[in-house]
Each structure stands twice: as structure tokens, then as C-alpha cells.
Design a protein around this nucleic acid. Sequence first.
DNA 1: TAATAATAATTAGTATGACAAATATATGGA
DNA 2: TCCATATATTTGTCATACTAATTATTATTA
Lengths: 151, 151
Amino acid sequence: MEQYNAYSFLLDRTARRVKQYAQYQFNCREFGITVDQWAILKNLKQYADLSQKELAEYCGKDQPTLTRIVDLLVGKKLVERRIHPTDRRSFIVHLTAAGDQKIEALSNSVNEIRMQAWQNLNEADFEHLKRILNTIYTNLELDNGNTSIDG
Amino acid sequence: MEQYNAYSFLLDRTARRVKQYAQYQFNCREFGITVDQWAILKNLKQYADLSQKELAEYCGKDQPTLTRIVDLLVGKKLVERRIHPTDRRSFIVHLTAAGDQKIEALSNSVNEIRMQAWQNLNEADFEHLKRILNTIYTNLELDNGNTSIDG
DNA sequence: TAATAATAATTAGTATGACAAATATATGGA
DNA sequence: TCCATATATTTGTCATACTAATTATTATTA
């Protein structure tokens, strides 16, 4: 049964390495943002204006973490908070022109950096990995619906 | 090429969920330590006295992080720092009797908790996962010149 | 041997992650 | 309408990462 400890460790270690490698490359190339901040920008680009709660769900962050990342992005003038038209508790997070330009400027480089981790793996491997990771995620599901990623 | 971003996200999200679930169970059962602290204790049990640098490598932590986790474990009297016999820059981290008892007391429960993530997967899945994660880890090895731990 | 470089550990600073609590607002029921 | 409850966000606290810099010590080398 000790083996499950080892798998958990391996998973944790690999995820940290992937993130750490990407962040290292971001820093070397002076992108001026973190990997997690990039994920926020990308989601805003894809889904347009979102409330912070929605954005947190898309990005897989909890709300306090998202609040703080948005604070940093606002400080960098890459996004801005707008008043929600019907709910005064809520903000709409909006990508600024500078934010949009940042995405345009970095997209290709980010894709290159991300690709590095996945060398020497084939399509069957990717399918295995997606299935296994989604199984693990579902095994530990708290009470949300099915949030498996397929693509 | 965007797919690699999605894989990276999936990996990160799954690793976080696995750790978060384990920590949640640790808290519910009032183990009094974190998942990462547990990993340190287990490595000390397995490899006996180690310098902090060695311990960091075995645990896949960097040295500043390890220093702080050891600080916390020292505060809980589960480990102690001992003078290195031949190198005065270095400490030996030693498991106390209380640390040893903690391991004995929690091992079965930790194994149960860890097992939860790996339901609905078979031996072939584990072999795939280990191979794929190790491939990713190796893919990112050179650029940072960091430690490689055999999984 | 003296100067220099390398190493182990620590400290400092920033970012993320988890959880709890506080605040303001919205919603639903009596 | 009033009140209890739910929700969106923020704030606080602790722990983990990563980087850079500092300190003390060891190793190297001119």
C-alpha cells in the first residue's frame, strides 16, 4: 500500500517541475508575468468578461487566490475590474488592450515552452495521461459536477 | 500546440487536488502535521540521519523550503538538528522518539487516505503513469541543472 | 599560505494554495 | 416588509515554492 504514497509524490514532483520550468523560461525571457497569471489572461481571452467566481472556476483556482492574482494583473494594467450590471457584490474582470497585446506577444513562445515537457510522448500516452488524471480527479471529487478535461 | 497548455493545466490541477484531499483528511483526523511534513518524516525513517541537503534531494524540495519544514518539525519535537561530525556548515536531521511514534501511529491511516486517489486504476495504468511522469521529468532536467530522483 | 571559489544553511521577498472569517449585497420565505 | 440565509469578494493566517542574497565554513589553487 506504500506504493500509493510513491505515486502521489511522483505526481506532485512532476507537476512542480513542469510549472517551475515554465516559470524559469518566463523569467529568462522577461515576460513580466507568472505562469498562473498567464492562465488567467488566456481564460479571459477565450471566454471574454467573466465574474471573478466564474474566472476562478475556469482557472481551477479558489476565490481568495484568484482575487490576489487579479490584484497583480490590475497592478500591471493587463486587466481591469468593472462593475457588474446586475449584482453589486460582483465584479467583471476585463482584459485591457495591454493585456490583449501581451497575449499576442507571448502566445507562440509560451506554446514552445510548454511543448518542451511533452517530448518523447505519443498520442496514446496523452490519452492514457488524460484518462488517468481525470480518473484521479474524479476519485477525489468533493461535490462539483463532472469537470473532466477532454481535449 | 495549445493542447500542451491543457495537459500542463490538467497535471497541475490533479496534483493539487491529490495534495488538498490528503491534507483535508490529515486535518479532519487531527494528525497535527502537513502532507509535506509527513514526507520528510517518512524519508528520515527510511534513510535515517541525513544532512538537510540530502534530505531536500530525497524529498524533492529546495533547500530554503526544507529549512522551513524542518524548523516546523523541530518546533513539534518530531525531529532535531544535530551537529555534523566532519562539516560544521552542515546539520544532521534526526528523527526523535516522538517522531518515530508519530510515524507508527499514522502510517496505516495515511496509506488509506492516499489509496483513495488511485481507485478505478489498474497495474497497467500505474505503469503508464510512472513512465509518462518520469519522461516529463526527464524532459525538463537539463535546463535547470537540478536534482534527479529516481521514482 | 593567502586568496579565491565552492558549498550548506539561512534569510528575505514575492507568489500561490488552502481555509476561515468578515463584509456587502442578494434572495427567499414568513 | 422583515428576517434569515446564501453568495461574491476580500482579508488574514499559515504553509509551500522559487529566487536571490547572506553567512559560515570548506576546498582549491596560485
